[in-house]
Write a protein that binds this DNA or RNA. Sequence first.
DNA 1: CTACACTGCGAGCGCTGTACGCGGAAAAGG
DNA 2: CCTTTTCCGCGTACAGCGCTCGCAGTGTAG
Lengths: 227, 227
Amino acid sequence: MPESRSIWLRRERSGRGPTPEHGRDRIAAAAIDLADAGGLDAVSTRRVAAAIGAGATSLYRYVRSRDELLELMLDTATGELDLTAPVTGDWRGDLLVLAHDLRAVYRRHPWLLDLAQGQAPLTPRSVAFLEYALAILRDVQAPGGAKMEAIALATGLVAQLTRLEVAAGRSSADWQAAQVEYLTAIVAEGRHPNLSAAIAAPGGAGDGEDVLDRVLPRVVAGVLGIA
Amino acid sequence: MPESRSIWLRRERSGRGPTPEHGRDRIAAAAIDLADAGGLDAVSTRRVAAAIGAGATSLYRYVRSRDELLELMLDTATGELDLTAPVTGDWRGDLLVLAHDLRAVYRRHPWLLDLAQGQAPLTPRSVAFLEYALAILRDVQAPGGAKMEAIALATGLVAQLTRLEVAAGRSSADWQAAQVEYLTAIVAEGRHPNLSAAIAAPGGAGDGEDVLDRVLPRVVAGVLGIA
DNA sequence: CTACACTGCGAGCGCTGTACGCGGAAAAGG
DNA sequence: CCTTTTCCGCGTACAGCGCTCGCAGTGTAG
């Protein structure tokens, strides 16, 4: 009987032998601290091991690969979402509340934007999130696959919005300087009138209200085929 | 006078000295071939160097860092977009044509989905893309910043849709098997009725028509504040 | 109490991105 | 023409990465 491929189907402690000195939650917390401070690149197996006071390669007793460590982090961070609010029946409103909460988590842990880009791996808490979002859409008339796609696109939208938001702070000053330098040259060259105009124009997007509030319901309605 | 920070402001050939044996385009093409075959991880400086028949570290005569190499790749791939179609005045239609073309490029080069997730770096061809998209929106009444945001969200939407699409092929069989194994256990446990129902339900999202066609105009209209 | 299964860990492998300095070649200056 | 300057290609080297393996020790099951 081969050991399960998913970490969530393996017991954390397995009876026999000495008691493990660390726990998945402590490991995930240490890794998240590193990622919050220095991005995903700062999360190396050795550094996480050092952070919990373990030997260089001892982490591999708890985790099969670095990817599984990232899965642990994703699960723990997803746990910061509040899924206790009862579903009201107004799916647009409920979904917006959830989306705002998700955006707050993304802001707190920007490395999630690098992690959850594709289809997110299934973890206990990400499954709970999915279940909750589907509960919000329970009374909406649409096939299950469409709802799943709507949720994936909605979280993708929140992620993309947050990326644009935190892009300024995440990239290095040197990188930004290079971009500005090139953009200046582009505009000075004069061959891109629309771009020049767009940059010169003052405008933020919204008149103070939130783009997320305006766009997200339309995305979901669009996917689900609701007028 | 310090050398420019952006590769696009540095001449490829600089008069003095021996003629370089390679060109940026050849390097980018070789790197793209590697990425198409094995993803971004397959693009290592040594491998690209070997592919063009150069010494292990000779690439650094053409590129300051691996990130600049990725910038070269992004620029070349963006060049596959067709920006020659005249703007018709129907911005929804024109934008959809452009979005479909972008999706085709993403399908051809899935590594772009890992690369262009945040704010894309400015390159000659990505700037041309921006200029073209802004030309499509020229007659739309909205501040420049809002248009930029709309374009960023639109490309993000195309990227997310393509990610969902190619997710099946990109991840390893082992990874998928692990996900399926865990999902089966989740459903069997019975604590997630909505998720179980959604999986059991047959349904794709659209009745044959394209989700992109339905959602993208709504996103753009939502950002720009158009009813 | 024995035997086994499991623990933490050090050593080590192959790979990565990148800095540095060498020898030689090509173009500029006289 | 020759000299000088500037750049090219590359070999070497370094720190860090994910990960494997085997050893010594420890806790639990029988």
